[in-house]
Design a protein around this nucleic acid. Structure first.
Length: 159
DNA sequence: GCCAACGTTGGC
DNA sequence: GCCAACGTTGGC
């Protein structure tokens, strides 16, 4: 088997649109609407079983709310072909789709939000993409050490 | 609500 | 291919 790429990711979602609680209720969802090339490339690099930090953005306070897992690897984002969808993009040709999505399932809701403030304050998390100033990337790779550390902060007593 | 940061678009 | 204008993201 080829060398594996990052097995850890972070995705941003506005909880008013779709929160970790929504994912918990729904159990599984498609992750459509990514319309940024770098984020799309990250989506395409996701592999089944990869774990994903679920980040709540544009809310007070922002932070990581839980975990999801990739259950279906990238396939064309058909919302881009739907004129009625807010994700419609005329430039995405069904014969050569420009945008892709994955499916993720609920894994865990952290007992408390791991806030951005707390992430910033932790020296072991220095360098995380989400902490970089002005970083708007909505789908990001996460290093294993950062992933493990974030989970540890979120769950003081891991099982 | 402000605005910095960043990506995209389009005129040239 | 440059780069100004514009739109969006997202923390504050």
């Amino acid at each position: 088997m080829a060398k594996q790429k990052s097995q850890y990711w972070l995705v941003k979602s506005e909880p008013e649109v779709f929160s970790i609680e929504d994912l918990k209720k729904k159990k599984r969802t498609s992750w459509e609407g990514v319309r940024n090339y770098q984020a799309r490339n990250n989506l395409k690099a996701m592999r089944e079983g990869d774990l994903v930090l679920f980040y709540h953005s544009s809310v007070d306070p922002p932070g990581i709310s839980g975990l999801a897992r990739v259950v279906k690897e990238a396939y064309p984002d058909h919302f881009a072909f739907d004129r009625k969808s807010k994700y419609f993009d005329a430039k995405s040709d069904p014969a050569a789709p420009r945008w892709f999505m994955v499916d993720v399932e609920f894994v865990e809701r952290f007992p408390a939000l791991l806030t951005l403030e707390r992430l910033k304050a932790d020296s072991k998390l220095a360098g995380m993409v989400v902490l970089q100033k002005g970083s708007r990337l909505s789908v990001q790779p996460v290093e294993k050490t950062h992933f493990d550390r974030a989970c540890r902060l979120a769950r003081p007593k891991p099982t």
